[in-house]
Design a protein around this nucleic acid. Structure first.
Lengths: 348, 348
DNA sequence: CTTAGCACTCTTTGTTCTTGAGTGCTAATC
DNA sequence: GATTAGCACTCAAGAACAAAGAGTGCTAAG
């Protein structure tokens, strides 16, 4: 049984109708469409064959057809027309970008919120370091007054963090500056776990009076380096799923929502390849909690050694073309913003 | 009609049963309790009076009694026994604090997650500045190499932020250090909106070649100061509400969930007074989206000029005593952690 | 004041029946 | 050989109805 042109267009019609209505599609509905000039009986025969081929299924005898995961997959790979944002929509997004991002706050967070609002689906964002082990590239200690100084730490991932430290005893600014030199000598380009006791002692010996501060600085360095492996997880719009009939069953909704949390951020799909929009359909998901849902996910470059991940979660009946288009548009904008570029009216 | 001792204990029993079961409480159920040595008829009479007094109500003729908001209020004010965490529970929390907090990340966030897990309700946290207008207390510019330097900004709220700036043209370290002095002269203790054109020009004139960098530094300062008014909102455990029968109606659940978002953080209850556990019952809420729910909220001191808010949202049928106890226990722990104290086995 | 008793109300649950959408199959038609 | 008309069949969903059960309010007696 081969995939005739007519079968393809029937399959496409069934899927697109089902995406819109969430109702099983029957032969009668199809016959009313202007696209088909055949009788309902013919459509029934074709649909029966599509069912045998695995693209459609049947909740029960007297119901219309519903796409299977395999059906969606075929649709995504072969049938789907690329969705192009309308000029208005693209412009609206661009303006929102300009405006919202100017408010500062976390740009990534804001972009996630925008995307969720546009798609009406939950959206997750995270960033994951691609550089293997984070190390300190440079220590900087700035004396503020006799009782306090600021630690500034730059990592090999070009992240800069600081902390104001208050001391219970006065400390000479020169001692602090000297300590910085020593710290840079002993502890740069070293993963946190290699901050050895021994090195601390040698450094303390060289530092004299300021040696007592080493532990404080290194503790902060450890925290910063640990935070580098942090996934910076953010999630919005989960409650949107309650809008869709597939999650009217509270248990299903809860199962998905419980899964979509920071704790599980490591289990959420990440794209296999940079800048590629990945579509994972229902049972294709590794995690069983996602097997009834689909995920569209993309990654984008941010700074050196870091990539960002942006994903949309929804029912398998999801307008893949539209969501993918919006997702990649936002990712594109985000990438530019993060690189500090101005925002040209980028490609829709 | 006065509130006899017996009425009080009947009211308490009804409320506590209803909190446990979410089922209307009838006279038969009460008569089975060992606490009452009267007949069901007597209980019925008493309950009818409690209903007239406004503490109970009746979904329909043949149903048991359900507490009204007024009933809960009376319970909270007069009837409720303070709930004391068991030693085991307190100890468990203390250990979790020690462990989880050591992982760093945002302590407040972690505490929120713990509380949500303990109560099985959604929890929100935010911090709000109590100091009126944020200003820069001190600018610090650290030259890194000819093409880059780090801006460090300390605010009057003792927040320190920094940013690495790359320049398209080389800049002499001395010029940068000189600029720092000028910035501190012209722009400290000044709200962001008073960074006038005029002041920028005067400063630029004095700075010479490095004057071009003023705009960059001030832009960052503006961002930092704006972020100071940020509420640092965090929310967890929203999906928990789906566990409770009062939110089995998907529309109700969605209404609440849609309301519980960052955008509405300003509308969420904040305690009237520092360190006081506030209980807001159903219709007592200002926001109509919360009128079917209750909120327990507390604030705690963090650093100077900042207070933190920690709140729990749940159905009006909520174990007020238990939740309040847990909430304030966590808030207490959080406060200590944030003040950098070690964790003694604090009061349950 | 308390309680036993009883009629009454209203929700909940289960049952049965009907309706209608949609199918699969067969036989006739192009 | 592909298409179509026709028809019997299936099954979910909804309506209508009945029965059960929980709980009430009231009355009259203790």
């Amino acid at each position: 049984m081969d995939m005739s042109e007519r079968k393809r267009s029937i399959l496409r019609a069934v899927i697109e109708l089902y995406i819109k209505t969430a109702e099983p599609v029957g032969s009668k509905t199809l016959v009313q469409m202007p696209d088909f000039h055949v009788s309902s009986a013919t459509l029934r025969n074709e649909m029966a064959e599509l069912e045998i081929m695995g693209y459609l299924e049947h909740p029960h005898t007297s119901a219309g057809r519903v796409p299977t995961a395999q059906g969606y997959r075929f649709y995504v790979n072969e049938l789907m027309n690329a969705y192009r944002l309308s000029v208005e929509e693209a412009e609206r997004v661009r303006l929102a970008f300009q405006e919202k991002m100017a408010e500062l706050g976390n740009m990534i967070t804001k972009a996630g919120r925008m995307l969720s609002q546009m798609t009406q689906f939950p959206v997750y964002t995270m960033s994951s370091s691609t550089k293997a082990v984070p190390t300190v590239k440079r220590f900087e200690l700035i004396p503020v007054d006799a009782y306090s100084f600021i630690i500034v730490i730059m990592t090999n991932t070009d992240v800069v963090k600081n902390r104001l430290v208050r001391l219970p005893f006065p400390q000479h600014p020169e001692g602090i500056r000297g300590l910085a030199v020593l710290l840079n000598r002993y502890f740069t380009d070293l993963p946190a776990k290699d901050f050895s006791e021994e090195a601390v002692e040698r450094c303390a010996a060289a530092a004299g009076g300021a040696g007592a501060l080493i532990a404080i600085v290194l503790e902060f360095a450890r925290q910063v380096l640990d935070a580098q492996t942090d996934r910076g997880f953010y999630l919005t719009g989960t409650s949107n799923i309650l809008n869709y009939p597939e999650y009217q069953d509270v248990n299903k909704a809860r199962a998905l929502m419980d899964f979509l949390t920071e704790e599980n951020s490591g289990k959420l799909p990440e794209p296999d390849e940079r800048d590629n929009v990945n579509i994972i359909i229902g049972p294709e998901n590794v995690e069983k909690e996602l097997r009834d849902s689909s995920v569209i996910v993309v990654s984008y470059d941010i700074g050196e050694g870091q990539k960002g991940v942006l994903g949309v979660v929804g029912p398998t009946r999801m307008d893949y073309a539209k969501v993918a288009a919006r997702l990649s548009y936002i990712a594109q904008g985000l990438k530019r913003m993060l690189q500090g570029e101005a925002l040209p009216p980028f490609e829709p």
